[in-house]
């Protein structure tokens, strides 16, 4: 009997030590052990895809029965807006051509041109309540392979969502910017001041994040837009993050932070784009995460 308990204890200890080693090894973003993920995620991904697709459809189905009158009014409003936007669009098109020409003259490099966009569907959210991690249905076979110095930013048509954490054959994990523990180097579009946009546990449920390390002389107001700064080598420059929702003062002058409302609605994420760097040699590769 004593032997049995002893051996049980021995097994538990062995597993514990083994798992601690695994935790240590996988704590780096690119580890050799990532292939282990395939065991469960490969058979599960298609089923998850089906489940999240159908639940999205069901949710959409309920919305169908909303007030028709409201839809009519909205339609009218939207039509007016379209005509306005069309006018603006024509103007912008002209600017675009002009901009392109000027850029060519100045020989400015467009950071977005180095990236290829890969469309993906969100197939699963975080099973727990703590983190802002989700899975997408693109992985190694679509060229999203986590490697040293290779980062895959995830965006959609409205702005920045996050970055691929690691990937297996047919799916990848994405850490969103509202995840507590994620931080993005950003700039305030108007004043060009550098700040950090972080995820925060208490703001995560509303889908907001926190702007920290605001310089003292930065004059920020509600409604200012924030975009990525391109520093750090993870995200390309100029992706929209969101708007300042509130400026908060905590204690002293240095304790200023702001709440950012991301332009992406994290509660209704369905389709995203993964930015894949075309040039395999990343100059920012040596920079830390």
């Amino acid at each position: 009997m004593l032997r049995l308990i002893k051996s049980k204890f021995f097994i538990v200890m062995t597993v514990t030590i083994l798992m601690l080693v695994v935790i240590g090894v996988t704590s780096s973003r690119v580890s050799q052990l990532n292939w282990l993920n395939n065991i469960i995620s490969v058979p599960l991904s298609p089923v998850q895809k089906f489940f999240s697709y159908s639940s999205q459809k069901i949710e959409g189905g309920f919305g169908y029965f909303k007030d028709v009158k409201q839809v009519k009014n909205e339609n009218e409003e939207l039509k007016n807006k379209i005509s306005l936007l069309e006018k603006e669009n024509r103007e912008l098109l002209r600017y675009r051509v002009e901009n392109k020409e000027l850029r060519e003259v100045l020989d400015l490099k467009d950071q977005f041109n180095d990236y290829e966009m890969v469309g993906a569907n969100v197939i699963a959210k975080d099973p727990g309540n703590w983190f802002g991690i989700f899975r997408i249905d693109r992985g190694g076979k679509d060229g999203i392979k986590s490697a040293e110095g290779m980062y895959y930013p995830v965006i959609n048509n409205r702005g920045l969502i996050g970055v691929v954490l690691n990937s297996d054959i047919i799916s990848s994990k994405v850490v969103s910017i509202i995840d507590p523990g994620s931080s993005v180097s950003a700039i305030i579009s108007k004043t060009r001041h550098q700040v950090i946009v972080k995820g925060d546990l208490s703001l995560k449920e509303k889908g907001f994040c926190k702007m920290d390390l605001i310089p003292l002389d930065a004059d920020i107001a509600v409604g200012d837009t924030v975009e990525t700064s391109g520093i750090g080598g993870i995200f390309p420059k100029g992706i929209l993050i969101g708007k300042v929702k509130r400026v908060m003062q905590s204690g002293n002058e240095l304790g200023r932070y702001a709440i950012i409302e991301p332009s992406v609605d994290f509660k209704r994420l369905e389709e995203v784009f993964v930015l894949k760097n075309k040039t395999n040699i990343n100059e920012a590769g040596s920079m830390e995460k």
Binding site: V12, I23, I40, P127
Partner: peptide, 20 residues
């Protein structure tokens, strides 16, 4: 725990140990 780790964990092994 292991399956939870694989699904969404930042580290492999954290939830497994907890579950164990």
């Amino acid at each position: 725990g292991l399956s939870q780790d694989i699904m969404s964990g930042k580290l492999l092994g954290f939830y497994s140990l907890l579950g164990l």
